[in-house]
């Protein structure tokens, strides 16, 4: 039974990270209808920023995470202004090509300055908590609690504040949003900023139990795409639940079948769910 609960903890950990990354991706898609392939690169830059602030500049973990979130949020806003905004009247394929270009550019830039080596961020929370035979590493607990806190905060921002509601309004009816006087540029920049910050925080939370390297975002972004397709493109609850489904499927599948096939499980699930429900789990009202 303990082994089962151990997998629940692992599933929650993975699901929290996937959910945070997918949430940023789905927010941008919901508003601007851009599949931002560069989102995985923002995740990777987030991990490198935390690494640099912590290891090279000696900042405490939380300060490094906040600094990384601010830097990547700014990078996200710059991407919107310099790359996607000028393409706003172009055919959709141009956004996709530009996003892939940004992904390659960011990876190559990081490789130029930091090299291609694998790096490790030593967690300041490396203790282990034990509850009745159940082993919970502190960092994993931090990931779960951190993600839940962020999700609640984001939900509050989106549902209860006028500024946050502009993002939801823009996703539900773009013309309607223009007609009530919402400034689309402001919403687009804000969405890219939030999306970048979420990616950086997810990377900073996950990096201490993983490795940091220039292509670390590639598998994560593929999973995030699986998640938002599963959950329904543009759906916020879909991204959170989809993240948990993939996280749990990987944790349990990896443990009870074979850990070597855990990535295969995500994509297998995608095929199965799309066969049964092609619009995704939460597609109602999503794009």
């Amino acid at each position: 039974m303990n082994l089962f609960f151990q997998q629940v903890i692992n599933g929650l950990t993975l699901g929290s990270i996937y959910g945070l990354v997918a949430l940023g991706l789905t927010l941008v898609y919901g508003i601007l209808h851009i599949p931002n392939f560069a989102h995985g690169a923002l995740y990777m830059v987030g991990a490198f920023m935390t690494y640099t602030l912590m290891i090279d500049l000696g900042s405490p973990y939380w300060t490094a995470m906040a600094g990384s979130a601010i830097i990547v949020a700014t990078l996200g806003i710059l991407l919107e202004r310099l790359v996607f905004y000028p393409l706003r009247h172009s055919p959709p394929i141009h956004h996709k090509i530009a996003a892939i270009g940004v992904l390659l550019f960011l990876e190559a830039t990081v490789q130029l300055f930091w090299g291609a080596d694998f790096r490790r961020i030593a967690s300041p929370y490396n203790g282990i908590l034990r509850f009745d035979g159940l082993i919970i590493p502190e960092q994993r607990l931090l990931i779960i609690c951190g993600a839940i806190t962020l999700l609640i905060g984001l939900q509050y921002f989106l549902r209860k504040t006028m500024t946050g509601a502009t993002i939801i309004a823009m996703a539900q009816n773009r013309d309607g949003a223009f007609l009530v006087g919402i400034d689309s540029n402001r919403v687009a920049m804000m969405t890219f900023g939030i999306s970048g910050a979420l990616a950086a925080i997810a990377a900073s939370l996950y990096a201490p139990i993983n490795l940091v390297y220039p292509s670390m975002g590639n598998l994560v972004i593929m999973k995030a795409f699986v998640i938002i397709i599963l959950g329904g493109m543009g759906s916020i609850p879909g991204a959170i639940l989809g993240g948990m489904i993939i996280g749990f499927a990987e944790a349990f599948g990896g443990f009870y079948f074979a850990s070597a096939y855990k990535d295969l499980i995500s994509f297998g699930l995608l095929v199965i769910i799309l066969s049964v429900r092609p619009q995704g789990l939460f597609a109602k009202g999503a794009h």
Binding site: A165, T166, I168, A169, N173, D175, V180, G181, G285
Partner: peptide, 26 residues
Amino acid sequence: IVQCAEGRKLFPQMSVHQNLMMGAYV
């Protein structure tokens, strides 16, 4: 100058109250 457009252009998943309050955005 405010337009109430053809097809209504509401925010369908928002409540009636939220829709009305979005009108007060400016």
